[in-house]
Design a binder for these strands. Structure first.
Length: 483
RNA sequence: GCCGCUAUCGUAUAACGGUUAGUACAACGGGUUUUCAUCUCGUUAAUCGGAGUUCGAUUCUCCGUAGCGGUACCA
């Protein structure tokens, strides 16, 4: 069926609730790409770039493409590719075209696109926009050439009289930069350089919006000149701010704490919490909402709403977000996720030995912890008899001379206690307390020390209930004998 | 050095050119929780500096300063 351009725009507007003027550049579907290099690491900055691309695609009803920039042949392996796939999948950023899923514009790995590059190189050669020098292929700018001595580089360079290249950035607005020197597009070893393959792929894959880190803003003038030389439409650009390390100068590098997605996976962060945190680093819904459904973010996300200044990473805010998600998690999913976490943890064997107990303990832990990584330390004493007594807590609690008396009274009362539910246990301890003219608190601290080795944790009544009479008795007696 | 981008509490951010400059995290102090955590109330805390435009500037312009990025036959 035939559709007019107006009809198309109207439909797109209706379908995406998007401002029509944002479509001035393109008459077709939005196509964005995320183009990581398989280095064996997946950086949090890359994750956010991927996320913003994905959000924009989902917001506009467009296509999110994964393209692998693996031209650096030496340090590539399937393993490294899997890091990318795993990280994206874990974050929930599914791609519509790319490796594993295919698409009409493949292949999606640069290492498999050599023929495309030579074809495009030929176009440029035919157009007279290249020349060879020192065995490399250079891109020829259009204009009058002149020589000038560069003090900083300590050599004479050839410059070209050209007008500045204008970039209309969706986030930064109008940016101008003078691109006045020819540059290499194919190295003397025959490998095309990043600028060239990047632009060729964007043309070949019909990318409409290039959303990437600000570190590429200065490169963009090169890219724009290449697009023009190919006679291809220049895509819309959107350069998103960088993530700075939380302490010290500079952007976050892979050596910084918290820089790698892998680390969050290992530490048991909830991916939806990390994604929510990342959404808010450089973007906001223009109201006070913070914990948001991803569907709401998709609806509200737009490029002009992205901030222009770099953002410092804040692990405490992320931890808080993770806790908020943990608290809101349906119980059974919490237990299931906790199980997955323990399966990869050394303490997991003991913890998972008794599924019933494990579940009970996890129910106690859910409202108390900030992240799954706290679980082994927080719940260890439930699964192990040889837990350690915190020396500081022990000294403090056992410093009171009556502590041993309280312990003895508890042991004596224990056989007749109803341990079937928390309120019964509470009643029993209260009864014991009042009969000795004391309060619940007089038994709480010493009992807690005896059964858990510490002064923090779930309610003492719950610990008694889950542990059961025998183990509680053993632990109380052990502490009494010890002191 | 040169080029580009940026600049609001410690951090992330909000504020049609008109607000007592808001919110969240953190910090600190109460309350709740017979522990801890949660929750809750409160306190501390910001428009980088200087000009200009304007009746009025956090907001627009310019100049400084600082931060960040780029400046490769890396990506």
């Amino acid at each position: 069926m035939a559709l007019t351009v107006d009809t198309c725009c109207f439909l797109l507007t209706v379908l995406t609730k998007h401002k029509p003027q944002s479509f001035s550049l393109i008459m077709s579907q939005v196509r964005v790409r995320f183009a990581p290099s398989p280095t064996g690491f997946f950086h949090i900055g890359s994750a956010r770039t991927a996320l913003f691309n994905w959000l924009y695609a989902r917001h506009t009803g467009g296509v999110f493409i994964l393209r692998i920039e693996d031209t650096d042949k030496e340090r590539n392996s399937e393993q490294f590719l899997n890091v990318i796939y795993d990280s994206l999948r874990w974050l929930g950023l599914n791609w519509d075209e790319g490796p594993l899923v295919g698409g009409a514009f493949g292949p999606y790995r640069q290492s498999e696109r050599a023929s495309v590059y030579s074809e495009y190189l030929q176009k440029l050669k035919t157009a007279g926009r290249t020349y060879e020098k020192d065995g490399a292929v250079w891109f020829k700018l259009l204009g009058e050439r002149y020589e000038v001595y560069d003090e900083h580089r300590k050599k004479t360079v050839t410059k070209v009289k050209v007008a500045p290249t204008a970039i209309e950035d969706q986030i930064r607005g109008h940016v101008e930069r003078l691109e006045d020197e020819d540059f290499v597009i194919v190295r003397s070893d025959g490998n095309p350089v990043f600028h060239f393959v990047n632009v060729v792929d964007d043309i070949a894959m019909q990318i409409t919006h290039v959303i990437r880190g600000e570190d590429h803003l200065s490169n963009t003038s090169k890219h724009v000149e290449l697009f023009k030389a190919f006679g291809a439409p220049v895509p819309a650009f959107a350069h998103i701010p960088l993530i700075l390390k939380q302490n010290g100068p500079g952007k976050m590098s892979k050596r910084d704490q918290g820089a790698l997605i892998e680390e969050y996976q290992k530490r048991g962060f909830l991916p939806e919490a990390l994604v929510n945190f990342l959404c808010l680093l450089g973007w906001n819904p223009k109201d006070d909402r913070e914990k948001m459904l991803i569907s709401d973010v998709i609806e509200l996300f737009d490029l002009p709403g992205v901030n222009q200044s770099n953002a410092r990473f804040d692990e405490k805010k992320l931890a808080h977000m993770n806790m908020a998600y943990l608290l809101a998690l349906p119980t059974e999913r919490f237990v299931a996720e906790a199980k997955l976490f323990f399966q990869k943890h050394p303490a997991g064997v003991a913890a998972l030995a008794q599924p019933e107990v494990f579940r009970e303990v996890m129910l106690l832990a859910q409202p108390k912890i900030k992240g799954f990584e706290e679980l082994p330390a927080y719940t260890g004493y439930f699964f192990n008899e040889d837990f350690v007594l915190d020396p500081k807590v022990k000294d403090k609690v056992m410093a009171k001379p009556e502590a041993k008396t309280r312990l003895g009274e508890l042991i004596a009362a224990l056989p007749s206690m109803d341990l079937s539910n928390d309120s019964a246990i509470e009643e029993a301890i209260k009864h014991l307390a009042t009969s000795n003219s004391l309060g619940f608190g007089d038994y709480q601290a010493v009992a807690r020390l005896a059964v858990s080795g510490t002064n923090a944790g779930p309610s003492i009544t719950s610990i008694f209930r889950v542990l059961g009479r025998t183990r509680v008795e053993q632990r109380l007696s052990r502490l009494l004998a010890l002191s």
